[in-house]
């Protein structure tokens, strides 16, 4: 069987959902963040697959940007989480309840 674009897309869709699941059910901020990275990677995979099968480099270019953005986001995000941890000694999302109605 020939490997077509849909093979890659299914992998990417499943991976995306796994990542989303991670964001939804894990409670540790860092683990949630890892789920987010999975989602981004899934999107990247889809982009590259499309790019390849459409003979169009823009998709790969987008992946390049996505990776860069993800790196920046992770840097800021982790710094934030560390700052939070310093303040409250927790990285659990369920502890973020200082502002409730």
């Amino acid at each position: 069987m020939d490997i077509g674009v849909h093979h890659y897309l299914i992998v990417s869709a499943v991976l995306f959902c796994i990542g989303l699941l991670g964001v939804l059910i894990r409670r540790g901020l860092i683990e949630m963040y890892m789920g987010l990275e999975l989602m981004l990677n899934a999107a990247n995979l889809a982009l590259v697959a499309f790019s390849r099968f459409q003979n169009n480099l823009e998709g790969q270019l987008m992946v390049f940007f996505t990776i860069t953005v993800a790196a920046a986001e992770v840097a800021v995000g982790l710094a934030l989480i560390v700052a939070l941890y310093r303040k409250r000694k927790t990285t659990d999302a369920t502890d973020l309840t200082s502002m409730k109605l």
């Binding site: 674009v5 897309l9 299914i10 869709a13 499943v14 390849r52």
Partner: peptide, 18 residues
């Protein structure tokens, strides 16, 4: 939904780029 949507995606003929 996603898999259902995506599994029918059509492939162009891939040539060597990249």
């Amino acid at each position: 939904v996603m898999i259902g949507t995506v599994k029918h995606a059509q492939a162009g003929a891939a040539t060597a780029i990249g």
